[in-house]
Design a protein around this nucleic acid. Structure first.
Lengths: 207, 207, 207, 207
DNA sequence: ACTTAAGCGAGACGGTACGTCTCGTCTTAAC
DNA sequence: GTTAAGACGAGACGTACCGTCTCGCTTAAGT
């Protein structure tokens, strides 16, 4: 389940097929790595709002144009730099519905607690209105995968009879994500003890 | 009940009491109004990330220093400009718990659907990590008032026996806010039909 | 001879006649004194190019408008503040031409060596092209008086036969002022030993 | 002899030797030319005291940073823009002392009569106290060369016997420069007829 | 004593320019 | 033919002053 991950880079790159056989100097993996690492470092040091392309270039020992060549916007760079922090595994079928849902909640908490991931999530929200591509990339990389796998877990629970058969699954997903987001990031309350159980109970009890 | 509102300006101003007998020219209300209106206009036109102090001054026909004199940061200006969009009334006691909660959800939806309010909320979230004052001002002006009044509504329902007596009220508030935020702003799904009822049922059914 | 001095203020004021019978509060001598003293202090501390009206008002504990009410420009203020440093006495008739001329040169050196006087002279020169009033005020207060009195000394020498009878007096004055200015202010050479004698000899020897 | 000129730019630049093999885009000569021309135009239109970097950038159609990149101060920019107006040729040996000195005086008059040169000279004097670098640059570019060449002319005259052998040459130079400066710039008297002859006579007659 | 007209401090106002920073583009020499 | 370097036009940042304009208080002449 760990390898069911998604790459953000795809969103912003070419069709990735015809760029294989090329002449001249190839894309320098060292430069790319240095850029992404510098981006991560600076995200942790100064945060997304104060992260400038120039500072990344300076830190990475790289020309600005190299960054602009490969990433169209600051958001794209940040998303790719933090993509491994946004990898999300498939929720396993443990046979126990409440345990499955606890794993789902745990995944949310883990991601939202990760410094880099939370930084990029804030950035995505900040640009929800003026840069839909960033949100779309984040959705494809993290939101949809998690929702698909959490939806499967809930539907397993419904089939088992642990959850009401007429459950509004989409609403349940929103409740889970929304509540954990609210607690972890907005309220910055790290005490999530019993959160999974409480939410599971709430979902199970609704009719 | 509609007049139980809160003013954001207070957050950034002096104690407003001892500044009565002052010498020198007074603050020009026309200039203030023009600045706040220009801020609102530009927020709707270009959004918060692209709102510059210079553009506000230009639009308002005002010197930059007049803006810097009264608002310490862009965030403070935006918050005050949108303060009336963030007013929130007390939830009335209708005698019907589910109706009370529906009003609570309606308030959330209304605020989150307001273009200016949503813009400022995104801005607040964007600066959660690097400008705690903005978040604090928003909390005092909107979050706390709503939570206090929604908490009262839930506790009324518990006393009436419409809601379980051992309910985790804070969690319920997070579920309500989080879910509506998720639906309305993140998913941008305006179809909130039945949302109030579904959430009420979910809360009522949890044990 | 010490009282043959000139007031710069006159240049910038009204005809000084009809302003006699006036009602209301009179010009506050304390404020005037504080302003002029602050101007002198700041001239010595930061120099003319960096002297701002605001800093003078701040230093003098005075409103800006009080300054603008009485002095039309920065130059006018500076000139009046330093007027006592620009007082120039009449050259006495010692009976000895070379001694008279030595006194004339000494007066030039003394004025040019005075920190405040030199500051204001630089300011006058800086504005020669764009503020002729400043130059005119300086001319009336210092240049003309000195030239008149030095001209008299030279003409005494011509009558005595110590100087050639066909001397170009104006040129001599320019030579004296120009050379001392060059030495003292431009070259900043304080060693003016023998300067008076050398210049006197040069004038006397020309035919 | 006309090509024995001096460049002001050198004062503010690197040692100009090791900067040959450099990577990256080169200094754009068009931009430099536009900046220097705009500086000259504005010097003539509004004068040095009112010349702002922003107005130069605007006029030249250039970003401010391009100006700040190459000139550390307004003074440096002005000096380089007017450097060709400050070029000074070596005084030729005509064999006739009074003619040599007449040429020396003519050079002074010519430079002081040049609108751009006089503007920059006033600026240099205005900043004598607070920006010694500007004065130093002007000295190296114009003062020292002229003095060296005028000193040679005077010494030729002394060897020929046209001038007294015990002449104080430095004083003579100060007399020449100071007097012409006084006449031309301070008194703004353009009638310099006979000035050269009179000054030569005065120098020759001193003992 | 009462009125009335300045002068005063304070300080807000619309502006301009400062010098710095970053943007995204473009150009160059090196590898 | 990509890279690091870095110049370029553009324009916002937050600060400092400009000169003008209210304010409410103080001062003094003329009633």
């Amino acid at each position: 389940m760990q390898n069911a991950t998604y790459r953000l880079a795809i969103m912003w790159e070419m069709s990735t097929a015809e760029m294989r056989p090329k002449r001249g100097r190839r894309r320098d993996p060292d430069a790319q790595g240095a850029i992404l690492q510098a981006t991560r470092d600076l995200l942790l040091e100064v945060g997304y709002p104060k992260l400038s392309i120039e500072s990344v270039a300076r830190r990475a020992g790289v020309g600005k144009s190299t960054i602009y060549r490969w990433w169209p916007t600051r958001g794209a760079l940040v998303l790719e730099a933090t993509s491994s922090n946004l990898e999300i595994g498939v929720i396993p079928d443990t046979g126990d519905t409440s345990q499955d849902l606890a794993i789902a909640v745990r995944q949310l908490v883990d991601t939202f607690s990760d410094r880099l991931a939370s930084t990029v999530i804030f950035a995505v929200i900040a640009h929800l209105e003026d840069d839909p591509r960033m949100a779309a990339a984040f959705r494809d990389a993290w939101v949809y995968p998690w929702r698909a796998s959490a939806r499967a877990a809930i539907e397993r629970g419904m089939q088992r009879g642990d959850l009401p058969p007429d459950l509004d699954v989409d609403l349940c997903l929103d409740v889970l994500v929304g509540t954990v987001f609210q607690r972890t990031l907005v309220q910055a309350r790290p005490d999530t003890e019993g959160l999974a159980a409480a939410l599971t109970a709430m979902i199970a009890g609704s009719r």
